[in-house]
């Protein structure tokens, strides 16, 4: 790709990541949540793959690590679902509505679900580019 596209995508990349992470974090307050946020985040990495190359994207995160992150996140997610009463009863949350820290374990579930969806979409993109 030519130099304009490369420069612009390099400049815009952190902001795309930021927007994705913001949407994941505010999933319980505004429309969006884990899956749309993850899709936006990964579209940033897809932009890097298109404008630079697969290698540049693999310097950020490669397939092995994505698999490992996915496995570990799945483990934590299952533990949260199993020990859900602990999160419900023993952690103090803010009581005022419309604050980040107000929706009990939904925030954690959004975060982990976001990480899960992001790695899954990333692996789909990697496999489609490689094969």
């Amino acid at each position: 790709m030519d130099v304009i596209i490369r420069t612009v995508s390099k400049a815009i990349f952190p902001f795309i990541l930021l927007l994705g992470v913001f949407i994941i974090f505010h999933g319980h307050l505004t429309p969006g949540g884990s899956f749309p946020g993850a899709a936006i985040t990964i579209s940033g990495i897809a932009l890097i793959i298109i404008s630079y190359s697969l290698k540049k994207a693999e310097r950020i995160i490669n397939e092995e690590n994505a698999h490992k992150i996915e496995a570990i996140v799945a483990l934590i997610l299952a533990l949260i679902v199993i020990y859900e009463p602990v999160f419900r009863n023993y952690i103090k949350y803010g009581t005022r509505l419309f604050e980040l820290w107000s929706a009990q374990q939904i925030l954690f579930l959004n975060l982990l679900g976001g990480a899960m969806a992001a790695t899954a979409l990333l692996l789909i993109i990697f496999l489609m580019v490689k094969e």
Binding site: H67, A71, A74, L75, A78, I82
Partner: peptide
């Protein structure tokens, strides 16, 4: 009972990561 399904799904991801 729900642990069986959790166990199987998690082990699918662990298989991919640790082989």
């Amino acid at each position: 009972l729900e642990y069986t399904v959790f166990l199987l799904i998690i082990s699918a991801f662990l298989m991919l990561a640790f082989k």
